[in-house]
Design a protein around this nucleic acid. Sequence first.
DNA 1: CGAAAATTTGACATGACTCAACTGGAGTGG
DNA 2: CCACTCCAGTTGAGTCATGTCAAATTTTCG
Lengths: 171, 171
Amino acid sequence: MITASFRLRKIRKKQYFLQEGDVCEYIGFIMQGAMRQYRVDEKDTEHTVNLFIEDWWVSDRESAVMLTPSSYNIEAWEDTELLVATTAAMQELITRIPAFAKMARVMDQRSFIASQKRLNFALSYSAEKRYTAFAAEHPNFLQRFPQHIIASYLGITKDTLSRVRKQTLKK
Amino acid sequence: MITASFRLRKIRKKQYFLQEGDVCEYIGFIMQGAMRQYRVDEKDTEHTVNLFIEDWWVSDRESAVMLTPSSYNIEAWEDTELLVATTAAMQELITRIPAFAKMARVMDQRSFIASQKRLNFALSYSAEKRYTAFAAEHPNFLQRFPQHIIASYLGITKDTLSRVRKQTLKK
DNA sequence: CGAAAATTTGACATGACTCAACTGGAGTGG
DNA sequence: CCACTCCAGTTGAGTCATGTCAAATTTTCG
């Protein structure tokens, strides 16, 4: 039943898994590759909302749950292979298989906890602290994504991040 | 079974539902009153993480899920009445009653979506925009909580919020 | 090799913070 | 009912972190 619900999909670098305005109809599990979720504000500035690599689940939960058009884009940052299921199929698995239900709940809880943690950082720490904390927690992300993406994920400009790194290198 | 799991509890203004360092063993549903969840940073500054009023569920999800000591305090801001269950009892209800499981999942998802939304605001909008958006979305909170609490919830100082309000009143 | 993408750097502008002082209630006790 | 204190909010002056913009430099990759 599970294998019937998923199919392997390859997305080339710079191609989209989800585009702004579409309802998120799929959920993916990354086997190989890296992706980013971002939104574009009124001033055409991109804000990176999430970064994903191997073993992460990708989807816009808000759109998938509420069935509303997404305000995000999710693009492959590297050539990526993922196992993809429709949101409906995933829902079906959750109602049929108790273990899946448990997993889904754990996923939701972890997402929330992570988001809450990020919010704490955004609201109370300096650019430098945010960067060093991020670097400590996700050292591998630093290799996979360029600095200006990391900067936008941390809510600072690439210029500021560049200066921050120069500072921290001295130490 | 449900009624057996909950009991009514009254908490007076300024009393704690949860204190920093304790594992969150209870979850509450507010019948009447208002509460706030906050943490204290190294510089002894309080950061309001969440505000709750009637019909909201209260708990520190992170502590309850991970069984780790909480880094937050949850205090009654007004005299409050809530229906309280132990985290364990709640868990039991979730595994036994499918409707409860569904509800729990929806709660988790909504929390995540709300947190994500707040994160977006914190990372990309000015103090003024954050305030006006908050005021538009939760006008009733403005009456229930004093300005310095709202300011700390928005991640700005009370001084800045005071100035922001003066500006927006002119318009 | 050459073009595009990413990073660094400087000069400058500005939003928000800090700190301290002041004002005005709201509650409390004599 | 007044005096007193506590808490919330306002305001001004000065400072600082971060943003903005443009240019120079380096790296990546077809």
